[in-house]
């Protein structure tokens, strides 16, 4: 990990924020290979020098609607090895589903102000670069609330639901244990119980965790 610094492309139209982000990432030992101001430029830069991960703002010129999100979906489709961390001032359940629907890994979706929790943000960025997920707690809450009444969820206990929410944020079992102040063994038991209730079995590979979240949303293909 320490050998090669992560290569990051930043796409953010506000100069103030773009500069802030670039500085922050560099201070944290990541290499920002390009910082651009709109979706088209982002796609060109990614095509040129495929980075490990992109940090993408949703609202960018020319339309100031969801340029960044569209670009992110294109990147995930065309360069599946490139992680995409989408930042926005609002998080929308629908955007999360759009981002996640193609493939479960290598994607993140956070509220912009989470960047201020520098260490956690950089952690999330690395996770996304490695093919993991990082969903904002608020997105997860929205997704879960939406899925609350769909089938398998009803059979989950409150604790299992908490664990699943933490899983959706991309936390490891150790992280979840720390978050919920329970033992790691208890987390593992909850996780396998969730997998069981959702019908996710070991031969489905390591994406089982993400599939668990997606299954909840009715978006899982597994």
């Amino acid at each position: 990990m320490a050998a090669e610094p992560l290569c990051v492309v930043v796409a953010e139209d506000s100069v103030l924020l773009r500069e802030g982000l670039v500085r922050l990432l560099e201070e944290q030992g990541l290499r920002v290979t390009a910082a651009v101001g709109d979706g088209e430029e982002l796609l060109r830069v990614v095509a040129e020098r495929v980075p490990d991960v992109c940090v993408v703002d949703v609202r960018m010129p020319p339309t100031y609607l969801d340029e960044g999100l569209r670009a992110a979906v294109v990147i995930r489709h065309r360069w599946p090895q490139v992680g995409v961390l989408v930042l926005s001032q609002y998080v929308e359940e629908r955007y999360a589903v759009e981002l996640l629907s193609d493939q479960p890994g290598g994607v993140g979706y956070l509220l912009k102000d989470r960047v201020a929790d520098v260490l956690e943000f950089v952690d999330a960025l690395r996770r996304v670069a490695r093919g993991g997920t990082a969903l904002d707690a608020e997105v997860v809450a929205q997704l879960l609330a939406r899925a609350r009444h769909t089938d398998p969820l009803a059979s989950l206990t409150a604790r299992e639901r908490q664990v699943l929410a933490a899983m959706a944020q991309g936390r490891s079992n150790v992280g979840i244990a720390a978050d919920l102040v329970i033992g790691e063994g208890a987390v593992e038991k909850n996780v396998s119980s969730i997998f069981g209730k959702l019908g996710l079995y070991a031969d489905m590979g390591e994406h089982r965790r993400v599939l668990a979240v997606l299954r909840y949303l009715g978006e899982g293909r597994g």
Binding site: L16, L17, G20, L24, E27, V115, A116, D117, V118, F121
Partner: peptide, 13 residues
């Protein structure tokens, strides 16, 4: 947000 990020950087540093 830029201000919050700035404070975050200060904190991290």
């Amino acid at each position: 947000i830029a201000l919050t990020i700035l404070l975050g950087r200060a904190q991290a540093r």
